[in-house]
Design a protein around this nucleic acid. Structure first.
Lengths: 295, 295
DNA sequence: GCAACCCATACGTTTTCGGTATGCCTATGG
DNA sequence: CCATAGGCATACCGAAAACGTATGGGTTGC
């Protein structure tokens, strides 16, 4: 069953003439005549009545015509759809994000994406530090908004911005009275830490900052998310060093102070599988850059 | 755009492997690999991710897959439908009939057709003596139940029965008292005639009968249909010679009497275009014969 | 480090398709 | 009644596409 034959058949049926159809198809009349007869042979019944004034569909031919048209349309539609998806004009984009970025980014990012990527079905999935890598690798998300980036052989990164590190302290703490806290003042104070540096470079940025200032903070707890850290700060367990955007959505009773003499920051990055590189992802990165820039 | 390529594509997508798909398609692996790449070249984007453990659909491939499946199904469906129509297992049959036969035949014919031709859309169209031929020639009806048959170069005939000619007289007429009327008693009586013999052989059967008995009946009216003739008989305009089946549905006040010494009859025939010959028509003829036999 | 698996490439053979030339049939017109 | 024109079918040839076999390269797994 060849789609070309169906196309030829439709042309002949519509023109009611082999010659006219051959003209429309930019081919000679004899081979078209042959193809029509081959189609009839394949079906086992005549599709046309040959008259002296042209060809006329039989009932069997009429039965074939409508479906042949639909089949042709569907096949064309299929390749067009595939092209559109490949070009990033249509398709699905599953956006993973870390909760600490949600309040700061999503309210502006989502409308921006809907505007920049019309025709794309968007899905948003919250990722945790421990699942974000797997989510990309098993393709359950197409892109991930991470802080910091995921470093992995299969994963590509585009940094779209950065967040300064700030100190989170209880509002009634003595440190809260300072407009900016010198790093040296942290010496010996208990730290609520994010996952171990080996697994999470965010935490490693904090370690590097402390090490550079030769400050030691004993780790009293390790938590999975920034907001869990803030909860423990509020509970008086210790202090936390977190990206600035964590202020949004932070519980009452916590205040954020810049660290004097420290401009360290954590990168905000878009991450995706190398082999999933596509125009859609490029567009997403552009959107993310734009939104982060005016964050 | 070749349907074969789509079939190959679907096989590879389902088997997630060129080798397995080639096996299923009963072909070697290399040409299948080539065809897939040609399809990708035609679309302008990769449809599969090649891994070391086989092939995996990309988003573009996924977009194509569903429509490719539908297109394949439609194409198959189309050729199956065409075959079914050609075999008379599906399709449309437009049945023309003359009103004089309707009361006698249709109540039994319609259920018989629905039973014998399941899957066929039936349509019933009343034909007049003057339009029945055109109805067949322009294919607005597929078959025509006629009395008598249509004689035409393009039209084929199957006689399925015959109806004796009977005399139609007003109930209060003197002739109505006879159980059978000798043809000689018709001498000189006014006749309500059907269309001229040249155009209508039914009328010519009546002429032949009268001529054979050397009886002359002056023609007082010519009417289009048998039932119009009966109306004029009831009005006292004259007598009519009509097929026996005209009794069914005849107005009150008319009686029908056999003609003594005359066994003349008019054929009931199924007529159809020669070039529309089909299993469906053969089945229809069989049904008509069966129904007419027990009429 | 070798075997197994899987896809890609190369090349020769076969099938299929398209073009040209031509024939047959029917309608039309002088 | 013959001639012409229009339309489809057939025959033959050259070109393109597809298929099979042989083979290469990369990765996984024992």
């Amino acid at each position: 069953m060849d789609l070309r034959r169906l196309r030829y058949f439709v042309a002949v049926a519509e023109e009611r003439s082999v010659g006219k159809a051959a003209d429309r198809l930019r081919m000679a009349q004899p081979p078209l005549s042959v193809q029509i007869r081959k189609l009839e042979a394949e079906i086992g019944a005549p599709l046309f009545r040959r008259g002296t004034r042209g060809m006329d569909l039989t009932e069997a031919g009429l039965a074939l015509l409508s479906r042949a048209n639909e089949a042709l349309a569907l096949a064309n539609d299929g390749i067009e759809a595939a092209r559109a998806v490949a070009a990033g004009q249509r398709g699905r984009l599953s956006v993973g994000y870390m909760f600490v970025l949600a309040n700061a980014l999503l309210p502006k990012l989502v409308p921006e994406l809907r505007k920049s990527l019309p025709g794309i079905d968007l899905e948003f999935v919250e990722l945790s530090a421990s699942t974000r890598e797997a989510g990309l690798l098993d393709r359950s998300v197409t892109v991930a908004l991470c802080m910091p980036a995921i470093h992995h052989r299969e994963i590509q990164i585009a940094q779209v911005g950065a967040q300064r590190l700030m100190l989170a302290v209880p509002a009634r703490s003595a440190l809260a009275r300072l407009s900016a806290v010198p790093v040296s003042r942290l010496q010996g104070r208990p730290l609520i830490a994010l996952p171990h540096p080996d697994a999470n470079p965010a935490s490693s940025a904090i370690s590097a900052l402390l090490r550079r200032h030769q400050v030691v903070m004993p780790i009293v707890s390790r938590v999975e998310t920034v907001h869990s850290a803030l909860s423990l700060v509020l509970a008086g367990e210790g202090l936390a060093i977190v990206p600035a955007c964590a202020r949004l959505g932070a519980p009452h009773g916590i205040v954020f102070r810049p660290l004097r003499d420290a401009t360290d920051s954590i990168e905000i990055a878009v991450c995706w599988r190398r082999d999933a590189q596509s125009p859609l992802i490029r567009s997403f990165v552009k959107c993310a850059e734009k939104v982060v820039a005016r964050m």
